[in-house]
């Protein structure tokens, strides 16, 4: 039995490798993780962006760079042109012995005040302020962007596993190879397991790989494994139910798009909505997966919590499966 399952998995991998699609699906999450990594390092150091022309001296530029990202231009016109571009950047030039700040007018609220503050402080550096300021930190290096981004990606990748199965099954349906398998000694369960394995292997590979790449330190990867397996389970079932009930890729992709909404919706809801709204998300297994993943990244997760959340996910999955099993069985015929 095991050999038949692995045979099916092997064919899927071979066939998938020939079509670069599966290759992209495998590599792509790491690209996303890499981008998130880049973003978190660069976004963290952004306060204000300012473009200066040649009227601003070197000393001031050096001073400004302690507070803002500075771009230099050799003429006023070029600087003004830069300010007029769509991103948020202010312009600074000397005029009539004073400073003139250029803004487009639609920059994020409050940021021009920050620039005003910085520029004014340059001329008033020597003033003694009757206050001492001390800045320290509690040594927490994980920005919310990296924290939530990491969880979001890890869960999203679990859904991709379902997508691979979906594509795979539609391909089998279009090529009518599904019928050929139905008249072979392979049992239905062996076939399902063989196809489904990909939906587990990929997410585990991705989640763990990505979390390693993003470097969250010593997180409990066994907990990641358990959480990923439970979310992969529901993705696989969804992948199956869409894959076997659609014989063309168009309808399959449209159905998948509809699934993405509750997935992303419940995760964004968990991040942005205040706690009182969270009960409205309890139906979504992705909400529970996010809570687990978030706690794991924050190193606050306990095994009790992980098992409970995974149990909820599997419970919801079971209910969904009961509802879809007839459909899946019919579609596999």
């Amino acid at each position: 039995m095991l050999s038949k399952i692995f045979r099916i998995l092997q064919r899927d991998i071979k066939s998938g490798m020939r079509d670069y699609m599966v290759l992209y699906i495998i590599i792509f999450p790491f690209i996303l993780a890499f981008i998130l990594k880049m973003m978190t390092t660069s976004v963290g150091s952004i306060t204000v962006n300012v473009a200066v022309d040649d009227s601003i001296g070197e000393d001031m530029i050096l001073y400004l760079e302690d507070y803002a990202k500075v771009e230099t231009f050799d003429s006023l016109d070029k600087m003004r042109e830069r300010v007029n571009r769509t991103d948020d950047i202010f312009g600074l030039t000397m005029k009539d012995g004073g400073y003139l700040v250029y803004q487009q007018g639609n920059e994020t609220q409050g940021t021009v005040d920050i620039l005003d503050l910085i520029v004014t402080s340059y001329d008033n550096q020597d003033l003694e302020v009757p206050i001492d300021v001390r800045i320290s930190d509690i040594d927490w290096k994980l920005s919310p962007l990296k924290q939530y981004g990491g969880s979001l990606l890890a869960i999203f990748m679990s859904v991709l596993g379902g997508m691979v199965i979906l594509i795979n099954l539609i391909e089998e349906k279009t090529e009518k190879t599904l019928t050929a398998i139905n008249v072979s000694p392979t049992k239905r369960s062996e076939f399902v397991l063989g196809k489904g394995l990909m939906g587990f292997i990929l997410p585990i590979f991705h989640s763990i790989g990505m979390l390693l790449l993003l470097n969250f330190g010593n997180i409990d990867y066994l907990m990641v494994f358990v959480t990923t397996i439970s979310i992969a389970l529901i993705s696989v079932i969804i992948g199956f139910s869409i894959g076997v009930t659609n014989d063309n890729i168009l309808a399959g992709i449209s159905s998948l798009k509809m699934i993405f909404i509750p997935v992303l919706g419940s995760i964004f809801g968990a991040i942005f909505l205040s706690a009182k709204w969270h009960p409205f998300l309890y139906w979504s297994p992705f909400y529970w997966a996010f809570k687990s993943m978030d706690a794991i990244i924050l190193k606050e997760a306990t095994w009790g919590m992980i098992i409970m959340n995974s149990g909820i996910i599997i419970g919801i999955t079971f209910i969904v499966f009961m509802g879809l099993s007839k459909r899946i069985n019919r579609g596999l015929n």
Binding site: G44, P130, I135
Partner: peptide
Amino acid sequence: KMVYDLTLQGYESERFRNVIEKALT
């Protein structure tokens, strides 16, 4: 003398700290 003793999380950048310092005073 009045002292502002600010505690940040730790992931904030050098620039951010500098700006906060100025903003406080």
